[in-house]
Design a protein around this nucleic acid. Sequence first.
DNA 1: GATCCGTGGTG
DNA 2: TCACCAAGGAT
Length: 353
Amino acid sequence: MRASADLPDLLLAWYDRHRRRLPWRAEPGSRADPYHVWLSEIMLQQTTVATVGPYFRRFLELWPTVSDLAAADLDPVLHAWQGLGYYARARNLHKCAQAVVARHGGVFPDTEDALLDLPGIGSYTAAAIAAIAFDRPATPVDGNFERVFARLHAVETPLPQAKPMLRDLAAQATPARRPGDYAQAVMDLGATICVPRSPKCMACPWMEPCAARRLGIAEQLPRKAEKAEKPTRYGTAFWIVAPTGAVLLRRRVESGLLGGMMEIPSSAWAGQRHALSAVAGEAPVPGDWRALPGLVRHTFTHFHLELTVVATSAAARPVPGGVWAPLDALGDYALPTLMKKIVRHALAQLGRQ
DNA sequence: GATCCGTGGTG
DNA sequence: TCACCAAGGAT
């Protein structure tokens, strides 16, 4: 009979041979910098390793320590975060750095409870930092953990209902020895072997004890509750260019979608299309609008968006809440991907005329 | 608990 | 093409 105590050892032996080298990961035997661990964990929330790499390195260049980050203005932080998405993470990152300096003298706390009190750090991230940076026996249950343990124990209850059960199963399995390596090992396993589609069971160190593998249902787990269909919203973006070659931008409100980021002004995003004549009044300046051919499409977490772009020229007079940005300096502004798509579309359509 | 919050890769 | 997915948190 195989005792459950064998599970961590099997996995750690595999990890010692297959561990991935990642920019934020310490060399075997040495402990990672808590600042690096925290920064990477925030960036990795719902974001792939490949995407995070360049951002992580850039942030360390700009702000080598948590104190440097705390002393920075929010604007450059949002600018460096542009394209990563979930922009509340960047605002909380900045707040958290300031809290670490103010409350903890610039040194990250080493317990889950203290970490959990910091902005942007939830149950997963608190456990991940405690385990990886401080080698505490914490269990950071992310999507990898849920998938691996749903299969290991053949849990057929769909997510998110199964979350508490999976959390318990994972917590019970966490070893006292090398808990940090163990946590990273489960994540590596989920990222490279126990993947969502076509899991590579023949290469898995947990193939023998895996119940789903035995039952032949590994690929079907974890089951998930059906998601609501995404609605489509429609709007009109206003491309306003001054004779100086400057474009009118606006800063979005702090909270909510793309909070705090810059935008190309647009009408409200409504559930149905509206004619230009119906939305022209929502433009920040009056204009002799020209509709550009084509559409800009973008999909957010919970809705699709289709924007028409209309263009006009206008004198570069001050506009309440507006910023005139030189076309050749748009890179200096924190523009989320949707806004970059609008810029690209407008320049392409106007350039061909 | 349900909803909101981005983006790029993938099969 | 498009639904799914990725080291989740805040409200």
